[in-house]
Each structure stands twice: as structure tokens, then as C-alpha cells.
Amino acid sequence: MTEDIQRKLQSELNSFKNVQKELQKAIQTRQQLDGQFNENEIVKQELDILPDDGKVYKSVGPVLIKTELVEAKQNVSKRIDYITKELKRVDDLIVNLEKKQDGHREALQKLQHQFQQAQVKAALHA
């Protein structure tokens, strides 16, 4: 009886840890995306206040290549759109994983309780 519960407890603990790891990873991705989003927003603001004939360069490796302002603006907007979508995706993922984690935590607590009870019982019989 106790061994049975112990086995269940172990497998539940493993899946709980796995979810926790996934959640950590998702949160890290979220933070990274958030940083990229902010950086791009700032670049967009800078490009927006530039005069129409402003000179813009893009660094490709060690060289600066001249770009059209319109093109740069489009590029940054596209990137912001993409990052916004990614942020939404990761947010959903985090919500899902948090739900999963809570589920596992509850199951773990239940099993722990059962395990303790079984141990007490075994001790009484002994």
C-alpha cells in the first residue's frame, strides 16, 4: 500500500518538476521578448522624430549600410508586430503552465497526505 503511494508520489513529483522547468523557460523567453519589444519601441520613436530626409544606417557586421528611412520604419514596425504576437503566445503558454503546475501541486499534496496516513496505519499494525 505505502509503496504504491510512494511510486505515485514519485511520478507526480517528476511531472511537477518538469512543468516547473518549462515554466521557468517560458518566463525567461517572456523577459527576453519584453526587452526586445522595448528596444524596438524606442528605436521606432527615434525614427519617428527624424526628418523625412534623415540619414539612417544599418550595421551589418562591422560596416554601416545606408538605408531609406521609410524602409527602416517598416522594418521596425514589422518586428514590433512579430514580437507582440510572440509575447501573446508566450503569455498564453505561461498561463497554461501555471494552471498545470497548480494541478500537480494539489495532487502532490493529496498524495503526501495519503502517504502519511498509510504510514501511520502501518505503524499501528506493526
Binding site: 524606442i42 528605436v43 539612417v56 544606417y57 550595421s59 551589418v60
Partner: peptide, 21 residues
């Protein structure tokens, strides 16, 4: 001067605009 505004973009600004930046 040419200023790095982030995400590998650089813009040319005159001194006053650069100071303002």
C-alpha cells in the same frame, strides 16, 4: 555625428539634435 539608436540602427544627427538625443 552618427548615433546608435539600438537594434543595429544608426542615424545621422547634427550636434544640437545629438545633444538633445
Amino acid at each position: 555625428v552618427i548615433i546608435d539608436i539600438g537594434t543595429r540602427y544608426y542615424v545621422e544627427k547634427d550636434i544640437d539634435a545629438a545633444k538633445d538625443y
